[in-house]
Design a protein around this nucleic acid. Structure first.
Lengths: 184, 184
DNA sequence: ACAGCCATGTAACTTGTTACATGATTTT
DNA sequence: AAAATCATGTAACAAGTTACATGGCTGT
């Protein structure tokens, strides 16, 4: 919901037209999340459908302006007020967790490749920026990358003392027999 | 694509029926990603549509079995072989980056609330597990949480020396005037 | 003339997700 | 008899994303 909420939040600062919104979003995220132009208008349509924004005439140059509604402001406040709790639905972690449970998979080389990729991405990060938003996003990317490297070390240690996985033993069935109903 | 690929990877280990796949997926992720039952069948339909799996008869108890195809194996290998490069599209980072660029927003209290939530989630993590998959996912959650706390410190330091943001100055228009075309 | 940006939009698609329907079998 | 679990599905939707269409304006 980052694009949706992000665009809405920018609109909380004042009316904008589509292209301007896109630029503001890009700027505030330090150019790290360049949202596709089409997506902006798509998202604006959905925000309008949900009564969080309204079309509010044109500016002096004829560009169509969007303005936030009261519901929209409530939504922005809720977004900013709610903390983001990162679940354990971590794509990378789950991938590795499944990979190591697969037979005939060289888990060690997957870990190694991942470490190389992460280290590379980390090294490729821009040193620093004078833009506040960009600095914040950059700092996050750095911390995340370093955390990933530490985690990969931990995984290797875990693997060193691990036993093979398999499918669970087959259970006798209890449910209904397959294919007994067909919908109308 | 974690569910899709995860289920496919489990099928690479041998034929399964839907409910079994769901249980295997849950088990291998240490119960941290309990996929909805309906989603399993939805995903299986899509995997079948994409010729990555086929329906392959029934087991001795009448449950419908799914088996991976050659294309499916290729896909699994590609998934495991490709490293996941975490982009800078970080929901939390982008939210904070936008929040601090908004006027009239008490960024400090948002940061503080986020720190509390993160610390709480971190403390709530289970100590340890004897399940390999679960240990891996848990370790990732721990590292991520700690990295977030460090990042929040950095953000506070950045905020201490920051200047206010605003909308970019309005540019004279160059594009086409609004609403000059209507689709057929 | 042509490339490139400004500006707005539509169509089509993906994955993830939930709510619901259906019914059998086992346990209480 | 009721509740829980096993088991399979359908319908509907959200959010993100891309490809494409359209056309004006600016600079070379």
């Amino acid at each position: 919901m980052s694009v949706r909420h992000g665009l809405l939040a920018v609109l909380a600062q004042g009316p904008c037209y589509g292209h301007q919104l896109r630029q503001e979003f890009d700027r505030r995220t330090g150019g790290t999340w360049q949202v596709n132009a089409g997506q902006v208008y798509q998202t604006l349509d959905r925000l309008e459908r949900d009564k969080l924004i309204v079309r509010d005439g044109e500016d002096s140059e004829g560009r169509e302006l969007f303005a936030i509604t009261a519901s929209g402001r409530t939504e922005v406040d809720a977004w900013l007020g709610a903390s983001i709790v990162r679940g354990t639905r971590d794509e990378l972690a789950v991938k590795v967790a499944i990979a190591v449970t697969l037979p005939g998979i060289d888990a060690a080389s997957i870990i190694a490749a991942q470490r190389r990729a992460t280290a590379e991405a980390l090294a490729a990060l821009v040193e620093d920026s004078d833009d506040l938003g960009e600095s914040i996003v950059l700092a996050a990317a750095r911390e995340t990358g370093e955390a990933d490297l530490r985690w990969l070390d931990t995984v290797e240690q875990l693997l060193a003392t691990a036993e093979p996985y398999g499918l669970s033993a087959e259970q006798p069935r209890r449910g209904r027999p397959a294919r007994s109903h067909t919908p109308s």
